[in-house]
Amino acid sequence: MTIHTAVQPQATGVFATLYAQVQQFYAHQMQLLDLGECERWAATFTEDATFDVPTLPEPVVGRAALATATSRTAAQLAANGTRHRHFVGMFDVAEQPDGTVGVRSYAIVYASQIGGESQVHRVCVCDDVLVRVSGGLQVATRRVTRDDLA
Rank of each mutant, 00 (worst) to 15 (best):
V61Q: 10
A69E: 12
R122K: 09
F51T: 00
R143Y: 07
L137A: 05
G89D: 08
V144T: 14
R83C: 05
I3M: 13
G62Q: 04
E117C: 10
G89N: 10
E39C: 03
W41I: 02
V53A: 09
L66C: 06
E37G: 02
H86L: 05
A6M: 14
F87H: 14
V88M: 08
V101H: 01
E47D: 13
T44W: 00
L32F: 01
S105F: 00
F15I: 10
R142H: 06
D98Y: 03
L32T: 01
F51A: 02
E39R: 08
G81Y: 04
S71V: 06
A75P: 05
E39I: 09
A49K: 01
A94K: 14
D52C: 03
Y19M: 02
Q96A: 06
A20K: 08
F15E: 13
F45G: 00
D52Y: 05
T2R: 15
L56G: 01
Q29W: 07
L130H: 02
D148Q: 09
E39G: 07
H84M: 14
N80G: 09
W41E: 01
V103S: 00
A11G: 14
V60A: 01
Y26K: 08
T82Q: 11
G89C: 08
Y110F: 12
L77K: 02
Q21M: 06
T12R: 14
Q113W: 02
G115I: 02
T68F: 08
G116Y: 05
Q96L: 10
T55A: 08
V144Y: 03
G36A: 01
C126R: 10
G135S: 03
H4D: 14
I3E: 13
D128T: 05
E58W: 07
T46S: 06
F25C: 03
F25L: 02
T82G: 04
S71R: 12
A69T: 14
T17Y: 06
A16S: 12
T82I: 15
S118N: 07
T2Y: 15
Q24R: 11
A69S: 13
P54S: 02
S118E: 15
E47G: 07
N80Y: 02
M30W: 08
R146A: 14
N80R: 11
R146N: 13
S134C: 12
Q138K: 12
C124Q: 10
T82K: 07
R132E: 14
Q76H: 10
Q96W: 03
R146T: 12
V120I: 11
Q76P: 01
T73N: 10
W41Q: 02
Q138E: 14
Q23S: 13
Q113F: 03
G62N: 04
A6L: 15
A67Y: 00
R132G: 13
V7N: 05
H4R: 15
E47H: 08
L77N: 03
T55C: 06
R72K: 15
A67K: 00
G115D: 05
R72G: 14
H121G: 08
D147K: 12
A20Q: 12
Q8C: 13
F45T: 04
D127S: 11
V133N: 05
A79N: 10
W41C: 01
A11N: 15
V139L: 09
A74M: 04
A69V: 11
M1C: 08
Q119V: 12
E58T: 11
L130E: 02
V93Q: 06
G135P: 02
W41M: 03
H86R: 07
